[in-house]
Design a protein around this nucleic acid. Structure first.
Lengths: 120, 120
DNA sequence: CATTTATATATACAGGTATCTATATAAAGT
DNA sequence: ACTTTATATAGATACCTGTATATATAAATG
């Protein structure tokens, strides 16, 4: 009548530890890291606004278009664009001196579906 | 025929600067900050997984239930829960020694709708 | 029933790391 | 030459996570 050993790492339903043993880690670590990286790219107000600006263009939005809307230096804008690009939220292609940016819809849809699963 | 002054802060369509002058800052700064704060709370893989675990419970998920799923110390778990709580992604209420957490659906829906506007 | 023991949670602090933004500079197209 | 964009660097600030500690409740035991 004493549960003896196994004080930790138990998953049996007879354990007094854990109010709800049915909770499962549905999101594996690597997937959680991928999601977190996308969210991190959106964790700055300037980048939220930048992505919204880019989403308004038809893939023709260039850096100077974005720059006009912020009280930030050009290297700082360039940095934020790089963060969005490396996260996979936008793609960028050079056209002469200009670089045109467009949103990656797949990434946004992925985030949307995650959020959907988390509020039933 | 020369545009003279007004080298910066121009919004007039006659400005040679800016390939696409129709782009508008649809998201005001305070709103962008609010969104960024929510995204920042989700910018860590552990918090993504934690929110998913909490979303599985019926508002009865306690800290110890969460703790079991991570190789982190209790204060670290407590810290991450605090981040989620202060961002408004979860609410927490004490029941005796336990604290029960539940997701804030409004916050998740808000993020979802933002993402929706950004991929048309 | 009182007293100890264990459990759940929170706070304070600190070291290491990452992020933000500016200045300075470079490269390349028009 | 002028414009667009990128990189390097650096200082200030913020974030992550552990150790140490505190509090309050529950459980156990005499």
């Amino acid at each position: 009548m004493d549960r003896a050993i196994n004080l930790v790492e138990t998953d049996s339903p007879s354990t007094r530890r854990g109010c709800d043993p049915t909770l499962q880690q549905r999101i594996p670590t690597e997937m959680a890291e991928a999601f977190a990286n996308l969210f991190k790219a959106l964790s700055h107000p300037v980048r939220v606004q930048m992505l919204d600006l880019i989403s308004q263009g038809e893939g023709e939005t260039c850096g100077c278009d974005i720059e006009r809307h912020f009280a930030l230096t050009q290297p700082t804008i360039s940095h934020h664009l790089k963060v969005l690009r490396e996260a996979g939220l936008i793609t960028s292609e050079s056209h002469g001196v200009w670089v045109h940016h467009r949103v990656n819809r797949q990434a946004l849809e992925l985030l949307q579906s995650l959020l959907a699963t988390m509020h039933k």
